[in-house]
Amino acid sequence: MTSIFEPNGKQVSCTIIEAGPCVVTQKKTVDTDGYDALQISFGEKKEKNTPKAEINHFAKANTTPKAIVKELRNCSIDKQVGEAITCEIFTEGEKVSVVGTSKGKGFQGVVKRHGFSGVGEATHGQHDRQRAPGSVGGSSYPSRVFKGMRMAGRMGGDRVKIKALKVVKVFPEQNYILISGSVPGHNGSIVLIQN
């Protein structure tokens, strides 16, 4: 992350994203595939680590093997197979959504995972209850724990979408864009930007 200054001197923290070039590798249509979608690919991959079938698939679009392949349905981008989508589709000041996989947090308790407040107080004779989940259900009725009861467990590593982030700056030559605020995932992770 970095930050940028607005003309009035306000500092805005922002994330640097390498947005493309994403090559269109296939166009799926209702006639051939049963649905409409645009398949885009990003990131280089070594040819020796790529199955022949994939190499030929990318060769159809006149491109080298790519690491990430993603299908976009209901996509308004009008590009032919083999053409690249660059960061120039973004304009400075527009609002975008960013989809990514959040950082894994491991096994976490209910306070961190679900925002519980813990049970009771720190003093007045209580101990070991500050991060406890409390009761999970009635004893005689229903005499069981309801499905979906929020408890401790694995946290993070989920698909997360953050909406209404602002595109602060676009560097068309390097395909870098700056987005205000933070985005899901660790440094260097792959995200999908929707506008």
């Binding site: 970095t2 940028i4 640097i16 390498e18 560097f171 390097q174 870098y176 700056l178």
Partner: peptide, 13 residues
């Protein structure tokens, strides 16, 4: 990734 950060900083500073 590090290059991206260095580049953007250079542009902004």
């Amino acid at each position: 990734m590090q290059n991206a950060v260095a580049f953007v900083h250079e542009q902004l500073t």
